[in-house]
Write a protein that binds this DNA or RNA. Structure first.
Length: 489
RNA sequence: GGCGCAUUCGUCUAGCGGCCUAGGACACUGCCCUCUCAAGGCAGAGAUCACGGGUUCGAAUCCCGUAUGCGCUACCA
């Protein structure tokens, strides 16, 4: 694949950007960048009813977040604009009229009600549903009569009744359809807007798209597009259908499976580099072992030939693992910088904001290798920011200890810690390790009790570092408080 | 129902006729490291390559059926 590809991502602004669509965008982008071609962004806003306010912005937002920059399209323009289909209606109308004039399309006056009862009847009789071509051969008089009734017609394509339509998909290979199984689909709706089929063909051709890369669910409509290209005397592009992303039940990934928008993953604390890498690996692979790849490596190595043919389940656990890998690979400063907004949002309300950047900078290294998402960071570190610890008193009594020995241990620790001037890792270790021996306790027992006293939990970053960051005053106060709790038991 | 596509460990995948007694990753189990948790290291379990027929000296790999799954079947994309 060395010739520059002109590809496009053509989303419909009907909601937040779905990870499946974003992956389609990625494959397109990857091919464009790999071949030194162009990535075009075209907005398919031809369904007035389904249009959602703010959807366009969120789609652009999602693309930008992943670094999927476009060479032509909204905000950047280009030589083949406009890039909003709602601004290209004239083109579609002209194409539709041309097809009617040629005898390849016709006006259809059937009411939605008639179509509905027709379909219901077909289903009832277990016949394949599809338009019954009622208006295909209307006479001039019949048409005039309906026009006089004030009916605004749609334009339907006159699909050949016989023969086959085939195409060679770059991933799925040769696919053949009997024309007799394709019904006369709508080209132009009664509101003057084109359907996907018409707009797509007209624009892909006008925009000189070389490869149409889209999800497998479009295979069934591809013969219609081929037929249209042919009727319009246009050269069809190469078709590349890729397998879909599935939910755990192997059905097309949808809202009922949980998070489906790329923006939700951003909100949940996944890194864009993780999402980019992870999504690229759903249905595509480099070889038998390479999984962690930078954007550049992906661009350099991407190829259509290595896209598979089977749908793939979106594996959250693996995503979490991969995000951990990327989180750990960040520099300390970068990790802190990226975690900050999640911290500000996720910490308990009593925590005073803005946060002390210096203090946060000392805490973050303690959780960087423990977090799987940035959102987790707040939960992992909240005890550094609030003194309102709430924990089961029983947790202070570590395995094989009782209330008395726990009290003894914490009292002894308090005595040893009070004179420690510098609360750094080494000083704390120098004092506490011998203390365990002195008390006849395992380090795990002493440190465990201290951990609960100081952090309010049994699982936390290493004790000495934690205490060092918390500082002497806070630590002693917390141990004292724990003693109080123990004595009251 | 019709049409189309797919089918290798639980999951993502490598494999494009002999290198496969099927390799890697996530998850899982055990051990090591260790103040807990992570991370890391080592080891392990896990796939009769959906099933049945061919073709071939030889098939996960090629062909044909069957089954199952998924997609499409709108004046939605």
């Amino acid at each position: 694949m060395t010739t520059p590809a002109r590809v496009r991502f053509a989303p419909s602004p009907t909601g937040r950007p779905h990870v499946g669509n974003i992956r389609t965008a990625m494959f397109n982008w990857l091919l464009a960048r790999h071949t030194g071609g162009s990535f075009v962004l075209r907005i398919e806003d031809t369904d007035v009813a389904r249009k959602v306010e703010g959807a366009l912005e969120s789609i652009l937002d999602g693309l930008k977040w992943l670094g999927l920059d476009w060479d032509e399209g909204p905000e950047v323009g280009g030589d083949y604009g406009p890039y909003f289909q709602s601004q290209r209606l004239k083109l579609y109308r002209e194409a539709a009229e041309r097809l009617v004039a040629q005898g390849d399309a016709y006006y259809c006056y059937c009411s939605p009600e008639r179509l509905e009862t027709m379909r219901a009847e077909q289903v009832r009789r277990k016949e394949p549903p599809g338009y019954d071509r009622h208006c295909r051969d209307l006479s001039r008089e019949e048409r005039a009569q309906r026009e006089a009734e004030g009916i605004t017609p749609v334009v339907r394509f006159k699909v050949p009744l016989t023969g086959q339509t085939r195409f060679n998909d770059l991933i799925f290979g040769e696919v053949v359809f009997e024309n007799s199984t394709i019904d006369d689909f709508v080209l132009l709706k009664s509101d003057g807007y084109p359907t996907y089929h018409l707009a797509n063909v007209v624009d892909d051709s006008a925009m000189k798209i070389s490869h149409v890369i889209r999800a497998e669910e479009w295979i069934s409509s591809t013969p219609r597009h081929i037929l249209l290209y042919r009727a319009l005397g246009l050269e069809p592009p190469s078709f590349v259908h890729h397998p879909m992303i599935l939910g755990p039940d192997r059905a097309k990934l949808s809202k009922r499976h949980g998070a489906v928008s790329i923006l939700e993953y951003r909100e949940q604390g996944y890194l864009p580099e993780t999402m980019f890498n992870f999504l690229s690996l759903i249905g595509w692979s480099l070889d038998d072992k390479t999984e962690i790849m930078t954007r550049k490596e992906l661009v350099d190595n991407f190829s259509l030939e290595r896209i598979g043919r089977t749908g793939a389940i979106f594996n959250r656990e693996k995503l979490d693992w991969m995000n951990g890998v990327y989180l750990r690979s960040l520099s300390g400063d970068d990790f802190t910088r990226r975690a900050m907004p999640f911290l500000e949002r996720g910490l308990p309300p009593e925590v005073k904001q803005p946060l002390d950047g210096d203090y946060v900078g000392r805490i973050m290294p303690l959780v960087q290798e423990r977090a799987r998402t940035l959102a987790e960071v707040a939960e992992l570190t909240d005890f550094f920011f609030t003194d309102q610890l709430s924990y089961e008193p029983g947790l202070l009594i570590v395995k094989k200890m009782d209330r008395e020995s726990a009290v003894r241990a914490l009292e002894a620790a308090l005595r040893k810690l009070e004179p420690v001037a510098s609360f750094d890792h080494d000083s704390l270790e120098a004092v506490l390790r011998p203390l365990a021996v002195e008390l006849g306790l395992k380090t795990g027992q002493l440190f465990g009790a201290l951990r609960v006293a100081v952090t309010g939990r049994t699982v936390a970053p290493p004790l000495f570092e934690t205490m060092s960051v918390l500082g002497k005053e806070r630590c002693l106060a917390r141990v004292n408080k724990a003693l109080g709790i123990l004595r009251r038991m």
